[in-house]
Amino acid sequence: MNPDIRASGRHRHVKGPDDGGHRRRLAPSGVSQRSPMRLRHHKSRHLNARHCRTRHSTRRCVGVFGDAKQCGVDFRRLELLVDLARLESMRAVAEVHGLANSTVSQQIAALAREVGVPIIEPNGRLVRLTPAGRCLVGHAVEILALVEAARRDSDPLAEPAGRVRVGGFAVGIRVSLLPILANLAESNAALQVVINEYAPAESLALLIDNALDLALIYDFALSPIVLPPTLQAKPLWSTLWGLGVSSDASGTRADLRDFADQPWIVSSGTSTDENVVRTLASVVGFTPVIGHRIECRDLVEDLIIAGHGVALLPMSRSARRGLKILPIRGPIVEFTTYAVWRRGAIGGALRRILDQLAPEGAAVAHLDHWPRRT
């Protein structure tokens, strides 16, 4: 989404498009060819370690860090380095870990000695990662994920148990999570699912901070969310959106140029659907007039029926009297929901939930009915 939702979460206590609702594009596991993921990894220089994964740069990284067998690295220091790349501040890392600034600085310096190359450098009154430091961050993410996975899988025969904290937007919870709760309770009595309603930005921030175990988020193909490399995702279902207009509007497909002078209704909580509206308008050559910013989908429909504007709405949401939702001529407006978790954090309980949310090898489902508030 542009502006991108980044790892720190740009919004707190915001809602997205649904019912009163809330606010994709990851490069997760299990991507279906039918509905390819568009979510890109974080493009920040601090989080982007993809340059380490090309053939030439991988050779360069190996040359920088030497033989891994000769290099004993403290995992705790790798955690501090990953958080420094994400938070871009020694002070912020210290606050997250409950340490003194000097302690974080000493641990990062010790890590540099362990790997044998400088990994940070002065940047005014702050510091920044060196190219070797950014390369190490990419490897650190993979190493820490493997360590966490090994820890969680130390007893593979154990029955899934404990609390799984799930955060997500309302429609995602209704469509994906609620239908599997009864089966989970019946088959795993010791497993407790704790549900919290959050916008995608807030869910991702809490997931990164280890305050959630699983996030249900969404985005539009035309306004993708950006994920940091510490998170992993899998698509659950998708649906197409169209243009909500009053029932007296002519035609069976929406040519957006016919609505160039209409007030457009967008979300007040995030910029996602506004970005989509502006992208669609730019394709056909006009600048939309944003007339209203509304969270509740029912109120959006009320305004459309009363002739106060038009808005993007899910095609699978049943239209009320006085309203119709037209397919749009031009780029497809696709909305996709994802399950997101921390890399390496799939223990028995979370794995059981993910297996039911999206069985291995299953295609990305198409949502035929968008639920309404009752």
Rank of each mutant, 00 (worst) to 15 (best):
A319M: 03
V276S: 03
V245I: 02
D248Q: 06
P224S: 11
A149P: 02
R45I: 14
H292P: 01
H366I: 11
S282I: 08
M315T: 06
L207Q: 03
W370M: 10
R77W: 05
P3R: 06
S176F: 13
P359Y: 13
N196W: 13
P314Q: 03
L240T: 08
V141I: 15
A94H: 11
V193F: 06
G20R: 12
H13I: 11
A249P: 00
V93R: 04
P17G: 12
R329G: 04
E159Y: 04
H139N: 02
R163I: 12
F335I: 04
Q106M: 13
I119K: 07
R40H: 03
D258P: 01
D213F: 07
H308W: 04
N210K: 15
R373I: 09
D255Q: 10
V364I: 12
R53I: 09
G66K: 11
P327S: 05
H97V: 09
A319K: 08
C52D: 07
N2S: 09
V73K: 04
R253H: 08
V96I: 10
E334P: 01
S203N: 14
V147T: 01
R125H: 10
P156T: 10
D255P: 00
A170W: 15
A185E: 13
G309Q: 04
E114D: 12
R76T: 15
Q33M: 11
R278L: 09
L303R: 13
L184W: 02
A260N: 06
G72T: 14
L144Q: 11
R352W: 09
F335P: 00
H13C: 02
H366S: 08
R373V: 14
G348K: 14
G20S: 04
R297E: 09
S154L: 06
L181F: 03
I5H: 01
V276E: 02
